[in-house]
Simulated scan of single mutants.
Amino acid sequence: MNGSVIRNLSLSSVMLIVVSGCVSPEVAKETVTADTQRPVLIIKPVEYKKEVKPISVPTSTATSKSKVIDGKASYYANMFQGRKTANGQIFDQGKLTAAHRTLPFGTKVKVTNINNHKSVIVTINDRGPFIRGRIIDLSSSAFKAIGNPRTGVLNVTMEILK
């Protein structure tokens, strides 16, 4: 390096040291305090009650103790095996379960095939079917108990037991 460049750098650094020593630190007269407490949000659990709309039942098929509904039943595809149902249970094709759009979970329903009068009692644990004209979606084993799965859809009566 050139001698003049070294001399200029050293002179500049000495000047910076001298100037910085002359400056006195200014102490803040006002102390700013920050509130370190965070607001607490308390969430109370809300009880959710879903209103179940009553099912219109023709008077000719209604019995004095239970409601009977005529319609079509289908069954679950195998792709739903092992998946969660609407109430949180794991779906099993081997159990006698079914899906209904509005009935409460745990409701027992007797489903009777109109053609051969075979019936099965299932428990509602899912929502559906979402195909127009169908009133209940049965597990594969429940469907096999009352009809041939090759038909896909059966004409049934559905009696709400409990």
Rank of each mutant, 00 (worst) to 15 (best):
T102D: 15
T102F: 11
T102H: 07
T102S: 15
T102I: 10
L103Y: 09
P104M: 04
P104L: 07
P104D: 01
F105P: 12
F105C: 07
F105T: 08
G106C: 05
G106L: 01
G106N: 10
G106Y: 11
G106R: 02
T107N: 08
T107C: 07
T107K: 11
K108R: 14
K108T: 06
K108P: 08
V109C: 09
V109I: 12
V109Y: 11
V109Q: 07
V109S: 06
V109T: 09
K110P: 00
K110N: 13
K110Y: 01
V111A: 05
V111M: 09
V111C: 04
V111S: 07
V111D: 02
T112H: 12
T112C: 03
T112W: 05
N113T: 09
N113D: 14
N113I: 10
N113E: 09
N113R: 05
I114P: 01
I114N: 15
I114W: 01
I114Q: 14
I114Y: 04
N115V: 13
N115T: 13
N115S: 14
N115K: 14
N115H: 10
N115D: 15
N115C: 00
N115Y: 12
N116I: 05
N116K: 05
N116T: 03
N116E: 08
N116A: 04
N116D: 14
H117Q: 15
H117P: 00
H117W: 08
H117R: 15
K118D: 13
K118L: 13
K118N: 13
K118C: 02
S119M: 02
S119C: 01
S119R: 05
S119H: 14
S119L: 00
V120M: 03
V120G: 12
I121S: 02
I121N: 06
I121F: 00
I121M: 07
V122Y: 13
V122M: 11
V122E: 13
T123K: 15
T123E: 15
T123R: 15
T123V: 15
T123N: 12
T123A: 04
I124S: 06
I124N: 11
I124Y: 08
I124L: 11
N125Y: 09
N125E: 14
N125W: 11
N125F: 10
D126S: 09
D126T: 06
R127P: 01
R127K: 14
R127W: 03
R127I: 08
R127C: 02
G128W: 13
G128M: 11
G128Y: 13
G128K: 12
G128E: 10
G128A: 12
G128L: 11
P129H: 05
P129C: 03
F130S: 01
F130K: 02
F130L: 14
F130H: 12
F130T: 01
I131V: 15
I131Q: 13
R132V: 13
G133E: 01
G133K: 10
G133V: 06
G133Y: 06
R134Y: 07
R134Q: 11
R134D: 08
I135Q: 06
I135V: 15
I135Y: 05
I135F: 08
I136Y: 05
I136D: 10
I136W: 13
I136L: 05
D137Q: 00
D137H: 07
D137A: 00
L138C: 04
L138G: 06
L138M: 03
L138P: 11
